[in-house]
């Protein structure tokens, strides 16, 4: 068993376990930490796949930003120790497992190469150089327009969040 496969198994365990904790925990804070574990696992996958830049972004933005945001959200709302409704999970689980089965069948049932991808060739060697990622963002033949739109989106989200979350009293009632 090579180191890569070992790492993959560890990360997969962490990711799925984090997801299960998020699903199963009765405490919001535990769920948030489960989410964090899962996100860190995904960041590890990014490293394995050769995308260091995305891994770092994942850790900084998701773990450092979004999860903290959720923790704030948890703090600002009342503790909600909800009962685990087996019935609800079962109903949802029927659909979810059906979806999973279909998806896995679609993947593992497929023979050989598909869509020009050889599933056994392994991740790209060398990985994505950050310089190239930056150039791709700034190249108008590549991703400049989506990049600009994303920046506008972030600005709108910033302003919108402030506008939505401010107190009613701010409008002079």
């Amino acid at each position: 068993m090579s180191a890569e496969i070992l790492a993959f198994l560890v990360l997969a365990t962490a990711t799925v376990a984090g997801g299960v904790v998020t699903l199963w925990s009765r405490y919001v804070v535990h769920s948030a930490f489960g989410l964090m574990l899962s996100l860190l696992g995904v960041a590890g996958f990014y490293v394995l796949l050769g995308s260091d830049f995305l891994a770092v972004t994942q850790v900084v933005v998701y773990v450092g930003g979004v999860v903290v945001l959720y923790l704030f959200g948890v703090m600002l709302t009342p503790p909600d120790r909800e009962e685990r409704s087996i019935r609800r999970i079962a109903v949802a689980g029927i659909f979810a497992v059906a979806a999973l089965v279909v998806l896995l069948k679609a993947v593992f049932g497929m023979e050989g190469r598909w869509y020009g991808v050889d599933p056994d060739r392994g991740p790209a060697s060398g990985g994505a150089v950050i310089r190239e990622v930056g150039n791709a963002f700034m190249d108008k033949e590549a991703y400049l327009l989506p990049f600009e739109i994303a920046s506008v989106l972030l600005l709108v989200a910033l302003v919108g969040a402030v506008f939505i979350a401010r107190r009613e009293g701010g409008r002079g009632s």
Partner: peptide, 30 residues
């Protein structure tokens, strides 16, 4: 090397877990 299928399987598991969370939880933050 690790076949692509494995990654996809993990991703699908994660997706289904997320879907379950969305469907079964009764708290908007979840």
């Amino acid at each position: 090397p690790v076949p692509l299928h494995w990654y996809l399987a993990v991703a699908f598991l994660l997706f289904v877990l997320g879907l379950l969370v969305v469907l079964s939880r009764r708290n908007l933050i979840y």
